[in-house]
Amino acid sequence: MGRSTHALLFLLLLLCCAAMAVSTKDVFGEDTGLSLVARKEHHKHSGFSEGECPDACQFRCSKTAYKKPCMFFCQKCCFKCRCVPPGTYAHKEVCPCYNNWKTKRGGPKCP
């Protein structure tokens, strides 16, 4: 086989590998949990169990400079409300309990 044939076979092999790397969600319209990208696009924000709160709050507090207090209050709110808003800031309207829980001074309790 010539050099051009080997190059063509190599290119064909790369294309096949790339085609197989496509997420099962893209191919079948369902998420089987195999694609990390597909899991990060979907954010479940309500109906948490107590075991899911630390991970949700870790993401919620990931961009703040005050991680320890953010994590403390986020988890406290998550344990009570079973909800953490999507994203790292705002969107509190998605979780009414989380949004409406206030401090004694009337400020927001949940980050």
Score class of each variant (00 low, 15 high):
H43L: 11
S49Q: 05
S35M: 10
M71N: 07
R60I: 00
S49L: 06
K44R: 11
C81V: 02
T64H: 00
C61D: 01
G33N: 01
Q58S: 15
Q58R: 12
P69M: 00
D55V: 11
F72S: 13
S49K: 05
K68N: 13
Q75V: 12
V37D: 08
K44W: 05
F72N: 12
G47D: 02
C78R: 04
C78Q: 02
K63G: 06
C74Y: 01
R60W: 00
G33H: 06
K80D: 03
C53E: 02
S46N: 07
E52Q: 11
C57R: 03
C77K: 02
P54G: 08
K40D: 12
F48D: 06
D55K: 15
E50A: 15
K44V: 10
T64W: 00
A38M: 12
C61V: 01
A56P: 13
R60E: 01
T64L: 01
F73A: 07
L34R: 13
S35D: 15
C57F: 12
M71Q: 13
K76T: 12
C70H: 02
T64S: 00
C74D: 06
S46I: 14
K63C: 06
H45S: 11
M71H: 08
K67S: 01
K76C: 12
C81F: 05
C77E: 02
R82T: 05
K76G: 11
E41N: 11
F59L: 09
S35C: 15
S62M: 09
M71G: 08
F59N: 15
G47V: 02
C70S: 03
H45I: 07
R82I: 06
E52P: 07
E52W: 06
G47F: 00
S35K: 05
A38T: 13
G33K: 07
C78I: 01
Q58W: 13
K40E: 14
Q75H: 10
K67C: 06
H42N: 13
C81P: 08
C77F: 05
F72W: 12
E41F: 11
L34T: 14
A65N: 13
Q75M: 12
K80N: 09
E52R: 08
C81T: 03
A56Q: 07
P54Y: 05
P54Q: 07
C53G: 03
C78Y: 02
K63H: 09
M71E: 11
E50G: 08
G51Y: 05
